[in-house]
Amino acid sequence: MRAELQKFLSSITLDQKKVDDTIMKAVSKNIEGMFFLYGHGGTGKTFIWNTLSATVRFEKGIVINVASSCIASLLLSDGKTTHSRLELLIIVHESSTCSIKQQISQAELLIEAKLIIWIETPIMHRFCFEALDRTMR
């Protein structure tokens, strides 16, 4: 993990470092919140996500990497779709929650996670994010 993190940090740009520092500061202080990272293809979003994942894992934390599509999930280390990892229903409505039961290991994983990285968010309805928020509460 150390070698992987060093590889990422050795080629990070100043702009990417600012993003990484901002998010990692919130993670290290256990500040709840959302960060949206957007940009055209080739601007380094995947690089930042993987750097954040490596940093959290290097510090012995849990990071959950999910994507809104199966293809996008392949870009992330241990990435899964939101529907499979978070047990998010395919059809969501304004009072939906994720189908994770409180007593299973998947719920414990969510509770212990320092960071959830969710990519390709613009293709999802806001009810999906609200469902995860309700589940986490």
Rank of each mutant, 00 (worst) to 15 (best):
F8C: 13
V19C: 13
K45D: 00
K25N: 14
L88I: 04
T43D: 00
D21G: 08
T55G: 04
T55K: 15
A131P: 13
E112H: 09
R134A: 12
E4I: 08
L74K: 00
N65D: 03
W49C: 01
Q103W: 14
I23N: 00
V92D: 06
L86F: 15
T55E: 14
S95V: 09
W118P: 00
I104M: 10
K29G: 09
N50D: 13
N50E: 08
E87P: 05
E120Q: 11
A131D: 08
V66N: 10
S68I: 02
E108I: 05
L132K: 00
L37I: 01
Q102A: 05
E59R: 15
T43E: 01
K114I: 04
I62T: 14
L52I: 09
E87I: 13
S84V: 14
A67F: 03
K60V: 02
D21C: 05
S95F: 10
G61Y: 11
S99E: 07
L9D: 03
K80Y: 10
F35L: 12
S73W: 02
R126V: 12
F8Q: 11
L115S: 01
T121L: 05
L9T: 10
I91R: 09
F58E: 15
I62Q: 07
L76D: 10
L110F: 06
L9I: 08
S73H: 00
G61Q: 10
Q106N: 15
S77F: 06
S28V: 01
Q102V: 02
T121G: 11
K45V: 00
I100K: 05
I62P: 03
V56T: 10
H40F: 12
S95A: 10
N65L: 00
M1Y: 02
R2E: 05
H125T: 13
T82V: 04
I90H: 01
M34Y: 03
I31L: 01
T81Q: 09
E120K: 15
T82F: 00
K25I: 01
H83R: 05
R134K: 14
A72K: 11
S73D: 02
